[in-house]
Design a protein around this nucleic acid. Structure first.
Lengths: 220, 220
DNA sequence: ATGCCGTTTATTGTTCAACAATAATGGGTG
DNA sequence: CACCCATTATTGTTGAACAATAAACGGCAT
């Protein structure tokens, strides 16, 4: 009965599949994407794949050089810096002015627990994933559809950058407790404290990512 | 010599043309867009038009009902509310933390002058346009490419909504002087004052737009 | 006349094949 | 070894074709 969800259409579905392949590292940054080959690979026509390309280009996951085809975007230090600036601008006010009994708070709690479980199982990829849903939930606190979709893009780009970094443990491990403290502050009706905790988290996370990135950049 | 700008490609160019037609009111909100007819109208193939559709759908200017085609998006009160919330979140910090000698400040000055000229010529459409470039310049103060492109979308959606409102004079006239005061505050090295002026502007503008919108909504 | 059901028609969704335009490739030549 | 030109591969764009779905139409019973 709740099947009033329209079938997504082939292009959307293919976009999801390709997006997953990109942010999971199945396709490496900078790699060129041949239309003919990729179309065959994903079992769609070249035209449909082209529509998908437009979508993912808008999301910042692919770059388009005219007459030279599409490539997976290569994150730069500037892009990481920009992404963290945007995160601060969006996440901090969303958390500070949050309604403490918002639905998204429950999702934040679940995300913390899931991250904890993944850490116990040494599943660092899962930890990173849970961390992302945690921050997505923070943005959902603002109840702004435009911010939500915008942040989804930012998240995808960030995961693409994370794909370059090969130390997920160092990347995500220290932040599970930080997230838990943020949730606790929300439950204690202290959004100002939650905001400060999140600000500290973002500073530290940005530093770690930038450091790891600098190491990579030096090698190439 | 500065011709290292790549030719935009037919799809991008067509997207610009169609976007212009939508936000200028040449196509009314809610109107269905037949692929065959519009493709002939814009002298592109149906496949190319489809790529354009994907672009503009992501921008929030078109809506897609599966198997029922594309239509021009119809702005709702909720969307207007959301847009102004996002504008506050983006524009206020950008202005408050602006570097007073940023390049974009010059553009703001030019926009104010142009708006003034258009008002003298009773060109209210031009006034609205200049107002938009003024606020786009405010966002450019933040030097964040992601915020800039995001705000461009917001701007397009807002212009679409303005298209429904038939009183551009009432809509834009009182705000030219407000913009000038904001620039003056920036030149006086008082970004805090500029921020407060902008906040007041946004409050008033939102109220006017919502009121006009409520009148329209009641009629239908 | 009116409400319902099957058929017809138009539109969308998707693919394929073709061709021009552009960029990469490779080989010969000075 | 550098340069120029022909060859080749890839992208950019179009047109036609067909299945699938939704809209429009018309007959039929009440």
């Amino acid at each position: 009965m709740p099947a009033d969800v329209a079938p997504p259409g082939l292009a959307e579905e293919t976009a999801n599949r390709l997006r997953a392949r990109v942010i999971s590292g199945g396709l490496q940054p900078g790699q060129r994407l041949s239309e003919a080959r990729l179309a065959a690979d994903m079992d769609v026509s070249r035209n449909t794949l082209r529509e998908v390309f437009r979508l993912l280009t808008r999301e910042g996951l692919l770059t388009h050089l005219p007459n030279r085809g599409m490539s997976v975007a290569v994150p730069s230090m500037a892009s990481i810096l920009d992404i963290y600036r945007v995160r601060r601008m969006i996440e901090l006010p969303a958390l500070e002015h949050a309604w403490p009994r918002h639905t998204a708070v429950r999702i934040m709690v679940q995300a913390v627990e899931q991250a904890d479980g993944c850490r116990k199982a040494d599943d660092w990829k899962g930890v990173g994933s849970a961390n992302m849903t945690f921050h997505t939930a923070i943005v959902d606190l603002a109840d702004s559809p435009r911010l939500t979709t915008f942040f989804a893009q930012i998240t995808a780009e960030l995961r693409l950058a994370f794909g370059l970094l090969n130390s997920p443990e160092l990347l995500h491990s220290p932040f599970i407790d930080a997230n838990r403290k943020i949730v606790d502050a929300l439950h204690n009706d202290d959004p100002k404290m939650a905001r400060d905790l999140l600000a500290a988290y973002l500073d530290q996370s940005e530093r770690v990512v930038m450091a790891a990135f600098a190491r990579i950049d030096a090698k190439s």
